[in-house]
Simulated scan of single mutants.
Amino acid sequence: MASPKFHMAFRKYHRWLGFFLAGIMGVYAISGILLIFRPTDILKYDQVQTKQLEANLSGEELLPLLKMRGSKVTSENADEIVLNVGKYDKATGEATVSKKDYPIVLAKMVKLHKATNNSPLFWLNISFGLGLLFFVISAFLMFIPKLPMYKNGLKIAGIGAIVAVLTVVFGS
Protein backbone atom coordinates (compact mmCIF):
# COMPACT_ATOMS: atom_id res chain seq x y z
CA MET A 1 0.00 0.00 0.00
CA ALA A 2 1.25 3.48 -0.85
CA SER A 3 2.06 5.93 1.90
CA PRO A 4 -0.07 8.96 2.79
CA LYS A 5 2.83 11.08 1.49
CA PHE A 6 2.34 9.50 -1.99
CA HIS A 7 -1.37 10.37 -1.96
CA MET A 8 -0.67 13.92 -0.79
CA ALA A 9 1.81 14.37 -3.66
CA PHE A 10 -0.88 13.34 -6.16
CA ARG A 11 -3.32 15.78 -4.56
CA LYS A 12 -0.74 18.54 -5.08
CA TYR A 13 -0.10 17.64 -8.76
CA HIS A 14 -3.82 17.22 -9.38
CA ARG A 15 -4.46 20.71 -7.95
CA TRP A 16 -1.66 22.40 -9.94
CA LEU A 17 -2.62 20.75 -13.21
CA GLY A 18 -6.28 21.54 -12.47
CA PHE A 19 -5.53 25.25 -12.16
CA PHE A 20 -3.45 25.17 -15.35
CA LEU A 21 -6.07 23.31 -17.37
CA ALA A 22 -9.01 25.38 -16.06
CA GLY A 23 -8.42 28.02 -18.74
CA ILE A 24 -8.09 25.44 -21.50
CA MET A 25 -11.24 23.67 -20.27
CA GLY A 26 -13.14 26.96 -20.42
CA VAL A 27 -12.15 27.49 -24.05
CA TYR A 28 -13.05 23.90 -24.97
CA ALA A 29 -16.37 24.18 -23.15
CA ILE A 30 -17.38 27.37 -24.99
CA SER A 31 -16.28 26.06 -28.38
CA GLY A 32 -18.02 22.74 -27.75
CA ILE A 33 -21.28 24.52 -26.95
CA LEU A 34 -20.91 26.60 -30.12
CA LEU A 35 -20.38 23.44 -32.18
CA ILE A 36 -23.68 22.05 -30.95
CA PHE A 37 -25.43 25.00 -32.62
CA ARG A 38 -23.27 24.82 -35.78
CA PRO A 39 -26.24 24.20 -38.16
CA THR A 40 -27.97 27.35 -36.90
CA ASP A 41 -26.85 30.93 -37.44
CA ILE A 42 -26.52 31.74 -33.73
CA LEU A 43 -23.71 34.28 -33.17
CA LYS A 44 -22.82 34.18 -36.89
CA TYR A 45 -22.87 37.20 -39.19
CA ASP A 46 -22.64 37.74 -42.93
CA GLN A 47 -19.16 38.11 -44.36
CA VAL A 48 -19.00 39.41 -47.93
CA GLN A 49 -15.91 38.59 -49.99
CA THR A 50 -14.90 39.66 -53.46
CA LYS A 51 -12.73 37.27 -55.45
CA GLN A 52 -11.04 38.00 -58.76
CA LEU A 53 -11.30 34.99 -61.06
CA GLU A 54 -10.91 34.39 -64.77
CA ALA A 55 -13.51 36.01 -66.99
CA ASN A 56 -16.18 34.09 -68.92
CA LEU A 57 -16.34 31.02 -66.70
CA SER A 58 -19.35 28.72 -66.82
CA GLY A 59 -21.25 27.67 -63.72
CA GLU A 60 -19.58 24.26 -63.71
CA GLU A 61 -16.12 25.85 -63.85
CA LEU A 62 -16.96 28.49 -61.24
CA LEU A 63 -18.16 26.32 -58.34
CA PRO A 64 -14.88 24.43 -57.74
CA LEU A 65 -12.92 27.71 -57.85
CA LEU A 66 -15.09 29.26 -55.12
CA LYS A 67 -14.41 26.37 -52.72
CA MET A 68 -17.63 27.01 -50.80
CA ARG A 69 -19.52 24.00 -49.53
CA GLY A 70 -23.20 24.04 -50.50
CA SER A 71 -22.88 26.66 -53.24
CA LYS A 72 -25.15 26.19 -56.27
CA VAL A 73 -25.88 28.02 -59.49
CA THR A 74 -29.44 29.38 -59.36
CA SER A 75 -29.44 31.12 -62.75
CA GLU A 76 -27.05 31.96 -65.55
CA ASN A 77 -27.26 34.43 -68.44
CA ALA A 78 -24.80 36.04 -70.86
CA ASP A 79 -23.62 38.67 -68.32
CA GLU A 80 -23.58 36.96 -64.93
CA ILE A 81 -24.03 33.80 -62.93
CA VAL A 82 -26.28 34.05 -59.88
CA LEU A 83 -25.44 31.71 -57.02
CA ASN A 84 -27.24 30.91 -53.78
CA VAL A 85 -24.25 32.57 -52.05
CA GLY A 86 -23.63 35.54 -54.37
CA LYS A 87 -22.96 36.36 -58.00
CA TYR A 88 -20.23 36.25 -60.64
CA ASP A 89 -19.75 38.86 -63.37
CA LYS A 90 -18.63 37.07 -66.53
CA ALA A 91 -17.14 40.18 -68.16
CA THR A 92 -14.85 41.18 -65.29
CA GLY A 93 -14.39 37.79 -63.59
CA GLU A 94 -15.34 39.29 -60.23
CA ALA A 95 -17.22 37.01 -57.84
CA THR A 96 -19.00 38.49 -54.84
CA VAL A 97 -19.94 35.85 -52.30
CA SER A 98 -21.40 36.00 -48.85
CA LYS A 99 -21.18 33.43 -46.08
CA LYS A 100 -22.14 33.34 -42.44
CA ASP A 101 -19.34 32.82 -39.97
CA TYR A 102 -18.44 33.49 -36.35
CA PRO A 103 -16.54 36.60 -35.26
CA ILE A 104 -12.78 36.00 -35.46
CA VAL A 105 -12.27 35.04 -31.79
CA LEU A 106 -15.12 32.51 -31.81
CA ALA A 107 -14.02 31.17 -35.21
CA LYS A 108 -10.54 30.50 -33.82
CA MET A 109 -12.03 28.70 -30.80
CA VAL A 110 -14.15 26.48 -33.06
CA LYS A 111 -11.09 25.77 -35.22
CA LEU A 112 -9.17 24.74 -32.10
CA HIS A 113 -11.93 22.33 -31.10
CA LYS A 114 -12.11 20.77 -34.57
CA ALA A 115 -8.34 20.43 -35.11
CA THR A 116 -7.20 17.26 -36.89
CA ASN A 117 -3.77 15.67 -37.20
CA ASN A 118 -3.09 17.96 -40.19
CA SER A 119 -3.25 21.02 -37.94
CA PRO A 120 -0.51 22.22 -35.57
CA LEU A 121 -3.28 22.72 -32.98
CA PHE A 122 -3.72 18.96 -32.59
CA TRP A 123 -0.77 18.85 -30.17
CA LEU A 124 -2.74 21.04 -27.79
CA ASN A 125 -5.73 18.69 -28.14
CA ILE A 126 -3.55 15.65 -27.40
CA SER A 127 -1.92 17.40 -24.42
CA PHE A 128 -5.33 18.37 -23.11
CA GLY A 129 -6.61 14.80 -23.49
CA LEU A 130 -3.56 13.45 -21.65
CA GLY A 131 -4.10 16.03 -18.91
CA LEU A 132 -7.70 14.89 -18.50
CA LEU A 133 -6.53 11.27 -18.41
CA PHE A 134 -4.12 12.24 -15.62
CA PHE A 135 -7.09 13.72 -13.73
CA VAL A 136 -8.99 10.46 -14.07
CA ILE A 137 -6.10 8.43 -12.69
CA SER A 138 -4.95 10.89 -10.05
CA ALA A 139 -8.49 11.30 -8.69
CA PHE A 140 -8.22 7.72 -7.44
CA LEU A 141 -4.69 8.21 -6.13
CA MET A 142 -5.58 11.21 -3.98
CA PHE A 143 -7.28 9.06 -1.34
CA ILE A 144 -6.13 6.01 0.56
CA PRO A 145 -7.94 2.96 -0.90
CA LYS A 146 -9.23 1.79 2.51
CA LEU A 147 -11.26 4.96 3.08
CA PRO A 148 -15.01 4.98 2.39
CA MET A 149 -14.57 8.10 0.26
CA TYR A 150 -12.37 6.10 -2.14
CA LYS A 151 -14.87 3.26 -2.42
CA ASN A 152 -17.77 5.69 -2.98
CA GLY A 153 -15.68 7.47 -5.61
CA LEU A 154 -15.21 4.18 -7.48
CA LYS A 155 -18.98 3.57 -7.43
CA ILE A 156 -19.77 7.08 -8.68
CA ALA A 157 -17.11 6.81 -11.42
CA GLY A 158 -18.60 3.48 -12.49
CA ILE A 159 -22.07 5.03 -12.69
CA GLY A 160 -20.65 7.90 -14.75
CA ALA A 161 -18.98 5.48 -17.17
CA ILE A 162 -22.22 3.49 -17.55
CA VAL A 163 -24.22 6.67 -18.22
CA ALA A 164 -21.65 7.78 -20.84
CA VAL A 165 -21.71 4.40 -22.60
CA LEU A 166 -25.52 4.26 -22.59
CA THR A 167 -25.72 7.81 -23.93
CA VAL A 168 -23.35 6.98 -26.77
CA VAL A 169 -25.09 3.70 -27.61
CA PHE A 170 -28.69 4.91 -27.42
CA GLY A 171 -28.26 8.64 -28.06
CA SER A 172 -26.88 8.47 -31.57
Rank of each mutant, 00 (worst) to 15 (best):
S3R: 09
S3F: 04
F6I: 05
H7C: 07
A9G: 09
A9C: 12
R11I: 13
Y13W: 15
Y13K: 09
F20W: 00
F20A: 15
A22M: 14
A22F: 13
A22L: 15
G23S: 10
I24R: 05
V27W: 01
Y28H: 04
I30V: 14
G32F: 06
I33N: 08
I33C: 14
I36F: 00
R38D: 12
T40L: 03
T40A: 11
D41C: 04
L43H: 00
K44V: 03
Q47V: 11
T50E: 15
L53C: 04
L53H: 03
E54I: 06
E54W: 01
A55W: 02
N56P: 02
S58G: 13
G59K: 06
E61H: 06
E61C: 01
L63W: 01
P64Q: 05
L66Y: 03
K67G: 11
K67A: 14
K67S: 08
K67P: 02
M68D: 12
T74H: 06
E76A: 13
A78R: 12
E80D: 04
V82F: 09
V82D: 10
V82Q: 14
L83T: 10
L83Q: 08
L83F: 00
K87L: 05
K87E: 08
T96Y: 00
S98H: 05
Y102D: 06
Y102H: 01
Y102L: 13
P103C: 05
P103L: 14
P103E: 12
V105N: 03
M109E: 06
M109W: 07
K114P: 04
A115N: 04
N118M: 14
N118V: 06
S119K: 04
L121M: 11
F122K: 10
S127W: 10
G129K: 02
G129D: 09
G131F: 05
L132T: 15
L133M: 14
F134Q: 10
F135Q: 02
A139R: 03
F140T: 15
F143S: 13
P145A: 02
K146N: 15
